[in-house]
């Protein structure tokens, strides 16, 4: 499988940025938020089994840009990262290797473009800027897939907490339905064709 590589132009661009002396964009609230999340996981007895805390923070942040939190909960609230931690530990060494090396490259880009060390410490627009550069990479598509899987698989696999994913799309995992099922078949019985 191919790893993602920054394009030469993106790489040169980022060197230029670094040369201009972009400041480190760490802010206290961000650090606190990251620490809080890890702390919460520890408090609730949910230590990561497969991912390191750093990896979890980074992948969690990427997932949160794929399905952001806005007026409704997103990947972060759905606990997508716990799904990832769970399934990546289940005979998926190849994906894990790919994600780890992809993350190292992403962090290199973080340093070059913004002078920081961690993706999760960038602000949302900086994060989106980097993700847009790599959105056709295997690294990104693997994380996109795992984010969606963590959002929309049964909660027993570790994500989709409180059915957040299902509620988002208006899907109810109930056992049975009766017709009419939607708007367009509602008047079919009387109007027919």
């Amino acid at each position: 499988m191919t790893q993602f590589h920054l394009s030469r132009r993106a790489f040169l661009g980022s060197v230029k940025n670094a040369a201009r002396g972009s400041t480190i964009l760490l802010t206290m609230p961000m650090i606190l938020a990251a620490c809080n999340r890890a702390e919460q996981a520890r408090l609730s007895g949910e230590e990561f089994q497969t991912l390191s805390e750093e990896e979890a923070n980074e992948f969690d942040a990427i997932a949160a840009r794929i399905i952001p939190t806005d007026d409704t909960p997103g990947a972060a609230e759905a606990g997508v990262i716990y799904f990832m931690d769970n399934v990546l530990g289940d005979n998926r060494e190849e994906e894990l290797f790919l994600l780890r090396s992809g993350l190292r490259e992403l962090q290199t880009a973080v340093a070059l473009e913004f002078g920081g060390a961690y993706f999760h410490q960038l602000d949302a627009s900086q994060q989106d800027q980097l993700l847009t550069q790599i959105e056709n990479s295997t690294f990104f598509s693997t994380l996109r897939f795992l984010t969606l899987a963590g959002m929309f698989s049964l909660p027993e696999h570790g994500g989709n907490r409180d059915n957040i994913g299902y509620e988002l799309i208006g899907y109810a995992s109930q056992g049975a339905w009766t017709a009419p099922y939607g708007f367009y078949d509602a008047d079919y019985a009387e109007k027919g064709e």
Binding site: R65, I66, I67, E135, R144, L168, G170, Y171
Partner: peptide, 15 residues
């Protein structure tokens, strides 16, 4: 394929 508009579409389009 990702981001806010993607999420809005998902929420609307599935049904």
């Amino acid at each position: 394929r990702w981001g806010s508009e993607f999420k809005r579409n998902l929420a609307h389009d599935f049904s």
